[in-house]
Design a binder for these strands. Structure first.
Lengths: 214, 214
DNA sequence: GTCTATAGGATGATAGAC
DNA sequence: GTCTATCATCCTATAGAC
């Protein structure tokens, strides 16, 4: 889980694993540090050091400065969690169990990082959403994409469209809040409870009473 | 809603309304500003200006500096939302409808503040939880107290203890995540959906099949 | 593209008069 | 308790050599 590989060095597109270029290392460092410390708590100097780049390189790739870098970091977090969501939701035929699997993965990620790595966009977006609209929009887009992934999965298992849309919003909100509560209380129980209760809401797979995928 | 009054000038205890002393004004300003901008995004100078106090007064009342001030701000946020929770949960006999009322109040608060005032502890705690244990503990305590308030309310309406405890955690997590999603997306829909789905989980009042308050 | 140096300003915190 | 002045440090961002 949580590992993805791809051909390295694909020019022009996003790299994902080996031999990351300077720009890629900067985005990764920014995403990780802002995830842990938030926008204002993370300095560009710290990002450049963690990325093994110089300050000049950071401003070369991101002339828009810290704001542009934060938007790129949020987009990166968006894509990371989107990939995890799709992977875990597709691996389990029962959608309720699939959502439980996501909560377990989030709990594992939190525990393994000593409760440091929570949602990759929340810390960056919160506290800046009133001031920096670009970051707020990027975070809003991320939430919408995650909801859409869940909604698609629920519809694929036979749930009516309107019900799937509403439940998808509920799933993302609860995952978000439970991860936050788990991180702050340094206890995975909120995520485990969220998984069980969300599974209750989603209910058993309905492949029996509806084969139509809508 | 959301207004509470009490006798002013009660010495030694916390003031709540009129004639707030310097220390009180400082805590209020710190709580509001950190709620909106987070810990690192809020300067002590800004707090002192907003509070109408001098920098010397801030350090007089909070010799521990910004950290001590942040802990006080989180405690204040804890008490504020605890009061709102108790008030709204007690005003409605059906616990499911009571939770919906809370979501409506949160949505109203967000909209009225142009999506600036979200959870009074999340922004302060997030981004500092790994680095400043005092703040993390204060936030953890706040979450636990809110859960306890909801749990007590659910038990009072006839729900078995273990079920009430788990559902209370779920309610707080979902409220937290939905408020976050609503704030970031500048849309109250996540809170409305969360209210409906939480109401489904809580179910109808069970005063019919159990008069025992446990 | 990479690096160093630095400008210009803001920050948390302290000292000490009143 | 309140206020002002100030220190030392850190920050974002830029300039310009290589």
């Amino acid at each position: 889980m949580r590992t993805r590989t791809s051909a390295p060095g694909a020019p022009g597109t996003e790299e994902t694993d080996a031999l990351p270029g300077t720009r890629e290392r900067i985005v990764r460092a920014a995403s990780l540090l802002m995830q842990r410390q938030g926008y204002d708590g993370t300095g560009i100097k710290q990002i450049s050091q963690e990325a093994g780049a110089t300050l000049g390189s950071v401003y070369h790739f991101f002339p828009g400065g810290k704001q542009e870098l934060a938007v790129a970091a949020v987009h990166r977090g968006d894509e990371e969690f989107s990939a995890i969501l799709r992977e875990l939701l597709d691996a389990e035929p029962d959608p309720a169990k699939a959502v439980v699997a996501v909560t377990l993965d989030l709990a594992e990620g939190l525990r393994a990082s000593d409760w440091r790595d929570g949602c990759p966009v929340t810390a960056t977006a919160l506290g800046t959403s009133g001031r920096l609209p670009d970051i707020q929009r990027a975070a809003s887009t991320a939430f919408a994409r995650w909801q859409e992934i869940v909604e698609t999965r629920l519809r694929a298992s036979g749930m009516p469209g309107d019900e799937a849309a509403e439940l998808a919003v509920m799933v993302i909100c609860t995952l978000e809040g439970a991860e936050l509560a788990a991180q702050v209380s340094r206890d995975e129980r909120p995520l485990l409870i969220a998984g069980r209760q969300l599974a209750r809401l989603i209910g058993p797979a309905r492949t029996d009473r509806s084969a139509r995928t809508d």
